[in-house]
Design a protein around this nucleic acid. Structure first.
Lengths: 152, 152
DNA sequence: GTAATTTGGTCAACCATATTGACTTTTATC
DNA sequence: GATAAAAGTCAATATGGTTGACCAAATTAC
């Protein structure tokens, strides 16, 4: 039954191990920010918003929706909450008054820094241990996982 | 303001890039199975159940709960669905009739193979391109992300 | 200048995923 | 026989998302 297409059982087991590493690494990676968010009554979705608003000053709502991959209705409630909590700022776009520019407030920057900071710190620690070549390899694998394969 | 603790802005930007790679790689990685699941009227939670039952023949409900990190009430509905669809089998444990042994049926194995197979194939492709050293580095990084740091 | 389009906001209905709490049944164990 | 363990189930609740419909304001096209 073993041919060129079927992977050897041991290789399949190795790949399964890789799947599990991915699964549990992601879970562990989001655990710390989740914990911090909870003390503020916020959820992971708020972190995602804070992160991408932080990285993209003056981002418009529509652009944010595209990055997050959700509908405006899904964004609506948590974004309003962040604005009400004075963590995010929405100022009308000077050029196109229909649009709003989203930015982090000082408080928002502080919270975002605490949330993502925990993740950056962890990544930095691991990258230090693994070395520059290893870091590059990790980045390459992740980047290739994002790109669709030819056959897809 | 820059001292030993504050990361240089460029390093922080690199780490942010790593965070985004992780985020989008995970999203891309689950997209294909999700699509396949949808055609069967199933969700990601069903994939997780099928995967871990597949890797752990005769697993008990309690052990599955621990691995998945959810409550029995959360597992209840999707597991019953999988049993009703004849994808998972629950036979009483011969030694302890209170416990049930969960296993994939032939159909369950087929579906699980299709779901995780897509992910294994993708991983295998990327690992082939990156080479053995790169694969090892990737695994090391992921494994270290799972382990809690000393300060935590 | 008016019509059409774009950007964004909001309401409602709905579904999926999870939680906590309470309770039952069956079977082991002491 | 009492207690504990494994599993099943019901209810209430929260969260995160969807689709659909509709509205208001500003811009663009004609």
């Amino acid at each position: 039954m073993v041919d060129q297409i079927t992977l050897p059982a041991t290789r399949e087991a190795e790949l399964n191990q890789a799947l599990e590493l991915f699964h549990f690494a992601f879970r562990a990676f989001t655990a710390k920010p989740d914990q911090l968010l909870e003390t503020r009554g916020l959820q992971r979705v708020h972190h995602r918003i804070l992160y991408f608003v932080g990285r993209n000053p003056d981002i418009r709502v529509n652009a944010l929706l595209t990055i997050l991959g959700v509908t405006k209705q899904a964004l609506h409630a948590p974004l309003r909450q962040l604005i009400a909590m004075n963590l995010v700022n929405d100022t009308p776009d000077a050029n196109d008054k229909r649009g709003k520019c989203l930015n982090l407030t000082a408080d928002g920057r502080n919270l975002e820094s605490a949330l993502s900071g925990a993740q950056r710190k962890k990544m930095q620690l691991v990258f230090e241990k693994i070395g520059e070549e290893g870091e590059t390899a990790w980045r390459n694998v992740m980047a290739q996982l994002i790109e669709p394969s030819k056959e897809e």
